[in-house]
Design a binder for these strands. Structure first.
Lengths: 205, 205
DNA sequence: TGGTCGGGGTTGACAGTGTCTACATTTGAG
DNA sequence: CTCAAATGTAGACACTGTCAACCCCGACCA
C-alpha cells in the first residue's frame, strides 16, 4: 500500500478546523484554538502539520473537493439540459457552496492563511477549474462563443461567479443593490452570458 | 470653520500604512509596525484611532477614493466614446487600480481587518458603486439591456471585474489559464458583455 | 503672571498568538 | 525484551492589539 493515510488525529484536526469555520467563520481561527476544540495540547497540531498554513491548506483542499461536488450536484439536477444550461447550473453550484460554507470558501482564497505550496491545495484547485473548462468546451461545441480561448472564457465566467460570491460574503452587495437575493444576481449573470436560459433555482436547496 | 482636519500625525499614520501596503503587501501589517515606521511609540496610534480596524478603515476609505479616481481617469481617456465604451473603460480602471495597488485593494475588501462601521468607509465605498451605477444607467439609455434593474446589472458587472482582480491577485488565474495578461481577460469580459467594443488598453498605462 | 487642564506621546503591563525545544509516553519491529 | 521512532505535553520566546498610568507642553483663563 502506498498511503492508506493517517488513522485519526490528523483527520480530527482537519475536521475540527472545518467545524470551527462552519460555526464561527474564519475570524478567530488559530492553531491553539483548533487544538483546544480537538481536546489536545496547544503544540499537538505541529506533530501532524509543520505549520498552521499547512493545516489550513489541507482544510482548503477538502473545500475544493466539496466545491467540485457542489457543482456536480447541481449538474446532476439538470442533467438533460443543453451545455449552456449545464454551465449555468455549475455557476449556481459555485455560489451555493460559497453561501452555505462561507468559512471554508473564504479560507480557500486567502493565501496569507493557506500555505499555497501545499500540493493537495494546488491539485484540488486545478481539478475544480478543470471541471469548469470541460463545461465551457462543451458549450463552445454547442455554439457558445466558439472562437474564444476556452481557458480565457472559463476564467471570465469563473471570475463572475467568484466576484458575486465574494462581494456577497463581504456584505457589499446587500447595501448597494438593495435587498436582492444572490440567486437573482446569478440568474441575471447567466442571462447576460447566455442570452436566455431561465434556470430555475428552487429545486435542490 | 467646521473641520479643517488634523494637521499632521493622524495623516502621517494613514500615509505610513499606505506606504507599507504598497511596498510589503498586507501580510505583516499591524499597529506596532505602522507606529515603528512612522517613528512613534507603539501606543501612539491609539491616540488617533480607537483601534487598528479604524485606522485600516481610514486607509481603505482613501483607497476607495483612489479607485474612483482610477476609473474616472480611464473615462477621461476615452471621453468621446459611446456609453458602452465608457462602461468598459471604467472596468479597465477598476482592475488597473487593483493591479497597481494590490495592498490597498486587498485591504478594502477584508472586513476582518477594516472596521466596516467606519462612516467614511461606507460612504466612499457607496460613492464608488454609485459611479458604476451612473454608467450603467447611461448605457441602458443607449440600449444596453434596458429592461434590467440597474443596480442588479451594476452588481453583476462589478462582480465580474472584482472577481478578475481578486483571482489575479490571488495568483489563481496565472497557473490555470496559462500565462495570460489580465487586460486580455478584461477585454474578453467586455466583449462578452457588450458584444464587440474593442477597447484598446495600450494607452494610459 | 500664574494656575490648571487636556490632547498627544511614551512606557509598561496583560492576554493572546505561532513556533521551537526539551521531555514523557506510547507503540511497533527486530 | 529492547530500542527507536512516532506522538503528545509543557514551557519558553518573540510577537501582537489593547489598556492604564504617567508625563509634558501648549492653550486658556482669572
Amino acid at each position: 500500500m502506498i498511503a492508506t493515510a493517517a488513522p485519526s488525529t490528523r483527520d480530527l484536526l482537519v475536521t475540527t478546523a472545518r467545524e470551527y469555520l462552519d460555526t464561527e467563520g474564519l475570524d478567530g481561527i488559530g492553531l491553539r484554538e483548533i487544538a483546544r476544540r480537538a481536546g489536545l495540547s496547544h503544540g499537538a497540531p505541529l506533530r501532524h502539520f509543520p505549520t498552521l498554513g499547512r493545516l489550513l491548506a489541507a482544510v482548503a483542499a477538502e473545500g475544493f473537493r466539496d466545491l467540485y461536488a457542489s457543482a456536480a450536484e447541481q449538474l446532476d439536477a439538470v442533467a438533460a439540459t443543453d451545455p449552456r444550461g449545464r454551465l449555468g447550473a455549475a455557476a449556481f453550484g459555485y455560489v451555493r457552496f460559497a453561501a452555505q460554507s462561507p468559512g471554508v470558501f473564504g479560507l480557500m482564497f486567502r493565501s496569507d492563511l493557506c500555505d499555497t505550496d501545499d500540493p493537495d491545495y494546488a491539485t484540488e484547485g486545478g481539478a475544480s477549474f478543470g471541471q469548469l473548462v470541460d463545461l465551457v468546451v462543451a458549450a463552445q461545441a454547442d455554439g457558445f462563443h466558439p472562437d474564444e480561448n476556452p481557458a480565457e472564457l472559463a476564467g471570465v465566467l469563473w471570475a463572475t461567479m467568484h466576484g458575486l460570491a465574494s462581494l456577497h460574503l463581504h456584505g457589499a452587495l446587500a447595501p448597494t443593490t438593495g435587498q436582492i437575493d444572490l440567486d437573482t444576481l446569478v440568474t441575471l449573470a447567466n442571462r447576460l452570458a447566455f442570452g436566455v436560459s431561465p434556470i430555475s433555482s428552487e429545486d435542490t436547496p
